[in-house]
Design a binder for these strands. Sequence first.
DNA 1: TTGATAGGCAAGCAGTTACTTGCCTATAGT
DNA 2: ACTATAGGCAAGTAACTGCTTGCCTATCAA
Lengths: 98, 98
Amino acid sequence: MVDVGDVFKALADPTRRHILDELAERDDQTLFEICTRLGTKHQFTSSRQAVSQHLELLEAAGLVRTRREGRYKFHTLDTTPLAQIAERWVRTRPQENP
Amino acid sequence: MVDVGDVFKALADPTRRHILDELAERDDQTLFEICTRLGTKHQFTSSRQAVSQHLELLEAAGLVRTRREGRYKFHTLDTTPLAQIAERWVRTRPQENP
DNA sequence: TTGATAGGCAAGCAGTTACTTGCCTATAGT
DNA sequence: ACTATAGGCAAGTAACTGCTTGCCTATCAA
């Protein structure tokens, strides 16, 4: 079970949301792929290190999973934390309180 | 339409989540009520100004609505921003991308 | 009118965050 | 072996955050 605060913090940054958008469009991307596609497709220029640090944070929040293959590191979107947040913060809140 | 970033930022802080919890349990509370109940029921002591500033931020994010009545200001939970972020970030993400 | 209660305003401060800069390691191609 | 590529590490910095402190305004009860 991930920390809800970490997930919300991760989602609070626009660059990180763009990264998640990008990974939602195309999974299994390397750091450099994400960087270039953020610039070309999302008009959002960020340095390699900036994106790298964002990916670290996203991984810590459980939103991104990584897989090493040679000198490449592939990044994959993991939506289970989002589902957990929805469970706690969206579905239950309007009608009932446990 | 509220800013998604503001909502996530608002939800990123544990104190603010406690405040929302408190408002979910009992709606239409004044600042002082929220302060005392945060302490007694949630074991979460925060000063008046701290809570006040959190409420300001929550209101800016659209998660709390206020109503003045004499010298009292009542705070009400508004869940529509949660529904909106669910629409954008939870329901659509796992299967499809628009 | 006086005092108490509910809340607001704004400056200051310590801790955090997003980003840069510079250098280093590791894998792969030639 | 040498060079280019993919990525990591860590210190530094400017901006932001959460909170405190001190004072001020407004409403109500006596």
